[in-house]
């Protein structure tokens, strides 16, 4: 790797000041599972690496009913799937945290890093998008919230302005009678990147026979992870059933702009989105029924 400087501030303020005062290219370091690969391959250049793992707000995970789940931007997958409230209330988050890389990667890779890296195939992004996450961002101009569907703007590009950093990701408490799931297709079960992925969350009415609200996120089938708004809307007011899921899956297939690359062809991806959307909705609904 080319030479660079390294700092490890312990507060957000220190970090923001450091970012505004330093000339040259600055990159933040969380688990480093994307960053070190990119620096080593020469894909990214940097003058100063700021390690954010020493900042308390970025390192904690908390839950209460009012604020929902707050995942500090640098919290690694293993800490997420060992967290009791996540295990109890956010199954799609568990699904994503347990399929990213293998055990060693999961001890380092954060959801915040996955999101900031803005890969079209970010599994954590898909799961968080299906749950309506909000990104808490701070910069020298102050704090702002970005809905997760607006956070990734192109492959590898996010909506952060120069001098801004991601602090945490906030996911609303699940509604009564709701369930979520994240599913992807990979040739190898572990240590592989999604050819296509789907996240969904579903809220049912108290009789469990009508869908009140739904969100569907599609992964690795467009320049960024994508919210399938029309597909989700087609479910509202309907009784959950195979044909209804099929219809939503067909709408989702129309929303995507897949490419052909080493992992799969555009037509395979389109086919996969159909299959995965149906399966994902089915499991999300089953989970909603189980928690009720």
């Amino acid at each position: 790797m080319k030479t660079f400087d390294y700092e490890a501030p312990v507060t957000i303020d220190q970090t923001i000041t450091m970012m505004s005062k330093t000339h040259g290219q600055i990159l933040l370091l969380a688990g480093g599972t994307d960053l070190l690969v990119q620096l080593r391959s020469g894909n990214k250049d940097v003058d100063l690496v700021i390690d954010v793992k020493g900042i308390p707000e970025l390192n904690q995970i908390s839950y209460d009913e009012l604020s929902g789940l707050i995942i500090g931007a640098a919290v690694p997958c293993s800490q997420i799937y060992e967290s009791q409230p996540v295990l109890e209330k956010f199954p799609a988050i568990i699904d994503a945290a347990t399929i990213i890389g293998g055990k060693a990667i999961q001890n380092r890779a954060s959801f915040g890093g996955n999101l900031c890296n803005a890969s079209p195939s970010g599994d954590a992004i898909g799961a968080m998008m299906s749950l309506g996450a909000i990104c808490n961002v701070v910069g020298s101009e102050g704090a702002r919230n970005i809905p997760i569907e607006e956070f990734c703007i192109a492959p590898g590009k996010n909506a952060l302005e120069t001098g801004e950093m991601l602090i945490s990701i906030q996911i609303p408490s699940p509604r009564p009678n709701s369930g979520s799931h994240y599913i992807r297709f990979t040739p190898r079960a572990e240590m592989d990147i999604a050819v296509a992925g789907v996240g969904a969350s579903i809220e049912l009415d108290s009789n469990l026979d009508q869908i009140l609200s739904a969100r569907i996120a599609l992964v690795a089938v467009a320049p960024t992870p994508l919210l399938a708004t029309e597909a989700a809307e087609s479910l509202i007011g309907q009784e959950p059933s195979g044909p209804i899921f099929e219809k939503a899956a067909n709408i989702a297939k129309q929303t995507i702009r897949p490419i052909t690359d080493v992992r799969g062809s555009a037509s395979q991806r389109k086919h996969l989105i159909g299959v995965l959307t149906r399966r994902c909705l089915d499991i999300a609904v089953n989970r909603a029924v189980q928690v009720s």
């Binding site: 480093g32 293993s78 990667i105 380092r108």
Partner: peptide, 9 residues
């Protein structure tokens, strides 16, 4: 905790 030494500074 298990980690990859190549992916850390």
């Amino acid at each position: 905790r298990l980690v990859n030494a190549c992916l850390m500074l």
